[in-house]
Computed example of a mutant assay.
Amino acid sequence: MSNISDIIEQHLKKILEAARQDAIEIKRSEIADQFHCVPSQINYVINTRFTVEKGYIVESKRGGGGYIRIIRIQHQDKSELIDDIIEMINPQVTQQAALDILERLLEEEIVTKREAKIILSAIGRNTLAFQLPLRDEVRARVLTSMLSTLKYLNK
């Protein structure tokens, strides 16, 4: 059974799809009323499920006429997306950010589920048994190497 955060995330993604645009504007209070939750729950979903690593930019305007704009980042091709991710993860990347990136690569069909599991096992904290920040630096290097390989395999 899905929790409220999953349900809200799916709802917002459906709105984005239905709009057939790369951006939507929502009112936090209206979404909170719709799902009978507090507005901070909407903030939580937006801050954790609509991140740059997952391919979104979020803008907000506070106040009476305020809104939250969710923009889906679009790339010309997969090579450009991989370049942007490599730039984003260097010189270091946390485990959570790496997981978000893998989720995005799956959504964009750049990697298969099998490939994502292999990458995840190579960059996980159990494999990279170093102290921070070295672990995040090594994770970025390994992920960069794998993404570079994928980039040239996809051409």
Rank of each mutant, 00 (worst) to 15 (best):
M1E: 11
S2C: 01
I8P: 00
I15S: 06
E17Y: 11
Q21A: 11
Q21Y: 07
I24C: 04
I24T: 00
E25C: 14
I26G: 08
K27Y: 07
R28M: 12
R28T: 11
S29T: 11
A32T: 06
D33R: 12
D33Y: 06
Q34D: 06
C37G: 07
S40F: 13
Q41V: 12
R49K: 12
R49D: 08
T51F: 06
T51G: 08
V52T: 08
V52Q: 10
E53T: 03
K54Q: 05
K54P: 01
G55E: 01
G55S: 00
Y56C: 00
Y56L: 00
I57F: 11
I57N: 07
K61H: 07
R62F: 03
R62V: 07
R62H: 10
G63S: 08
I68L: 13
Q74D: 14
Q74G: 13
D77W: 03
K78R: 15
K78N: 14
E80I: 12
L81F: 02
D83S: 13
I85R: 04
E87T: 11
E87A: 13
N90I: 11
N90S: 12
Q92P: 00
Q92M: 05
V93H: 01
A97M: 08
A98F: 03
L99A: 08
I101T: 06
R104F: 08
L105N: 07
E107A: 15
E108C: 04
I110W: 01
T112K: 11
K113V: 14
K113Y: 10
K113H: 10
R114N: 05
E115N: 12
I118Q: 10
I119Q: 02
L120Q: 10
S121A: 13
S121F: 13
I123Q: 01
I123Y: 03
G124E: 06
G124C: 15
N126A: 08
F130C: 05
L132W: 04
D136M: 07
E137H: 11
R139S: 02
T144Q: 05
M146C: 10
S148W: 06
T149L: 12
Y152Q: 15
N154R: 15
N154T: 14
